[in-house]
Design a protein around this nucleic acid. Structure first.
Lengths: 145, 145
DNA sequence: GTCGATGCAAATGTTTTGCAGAGAG
DNA sequence: CTCTCTGCAAAACATTTGCATCGAC
């Protein structure tokens, strides 16, 4: 299996785009960090390693990484788009606590299968899906309510 | 069952807020229109009936309507938040065509039940969920690819 | 060298907020 | 009468874009 770095380089090369130090640094930081970073948060982290980097480059690179299939945008309904590394990772959805923002990755074959069937029943070819479960986690429930 | 207008009036009264002509007009327009309106689109429709109304009032009222449980925000991943009337309506999810933007409302008990179970398995109390299936509709598939 | 990439600042698009006057309870 | 509401314009956000310069290939 190719490394994410290779995948990115190949994607760029295939579109006559260039592999620059900034792009490498951004991918590298994102992979090391993992998790669910917003562009802003990623920018801050990247800036620590190269203070001359610009915000726009981070946004532009995130777009490329998404197109190359290396990362996935997430929407936790708080106004910012977050990203998570998705290359080589099994797909999963998110269970989010509405009180503390904590979130757990979930995966359920029953649901995945039904989604595929449902799309088919309507004649659709399913490309991707997003599922977010919002609730209250055990810790927050104990605290109040 | 209470009418949406009553629900809204009760919600406002309960918070010592006021039932104004603007708020009534916005709710009324939204209900008559149904569907998946963005704030911008709703503002345009409302303005036809009362040209003196302001954008901000529409945003503020949408927030109140959401809190009162009358409408539901939707995210079709196109940068704008849309709203749909949800009071007295059975919950449903959305199957969206990535090419033409057309979308179909779907509901599946198997999935709904599994979601509830999944949350429970992690100790969460499920409050709500969002599921979007993105694909290509039959018409668009015929046209190309 | 050439053409894409970068950093900066300005622009964009959506949503929020401050404020002074208007109006519901 | 008292607070909340409204419209307006300005502000606040996240994100995108134009441009001159820089640098990967």
């Amino acid at each position: 299996m190719k490394s994410p770095q290779e995948v990115f380089a190949d994607y760029l090369a295939g579109k006559n785009l260039k592999t620059t130090p900034q792009r490498r640094l951004i991918l590298d930081t994102l992979l090391k960090q993992g998790g669910h970073l917003s562009s802003e948060e990623l920018y801050a982290k990247v800036k620590k390693r190269d203070s001359s980097i610009g915000q726009a480059t981070v946004y532009r690179t995130l777009k490329l990484l998404n197109e190359s299939g290396l990362i996935e945008p997430l929407d936790f309904a708080d106004g910012v788009t977050r990203y998570e590394p998705s290359y080589g990772e099994e797909h999963h959805d998110h269970l989010i606590c509405e009180r503390c923002g904590n979130n757990i990755e979930i995966l359920d074959k029953t649901i995945e299968n039904r989604q595929e069937e449902l799309a088919k029943e309507h004649g659709f070819t399913l490309v991707r899906h997003k599922m977010y479960l919002y609730g209250v986690c055990p810790e927050c429930r104990k605290k109040k309510g």
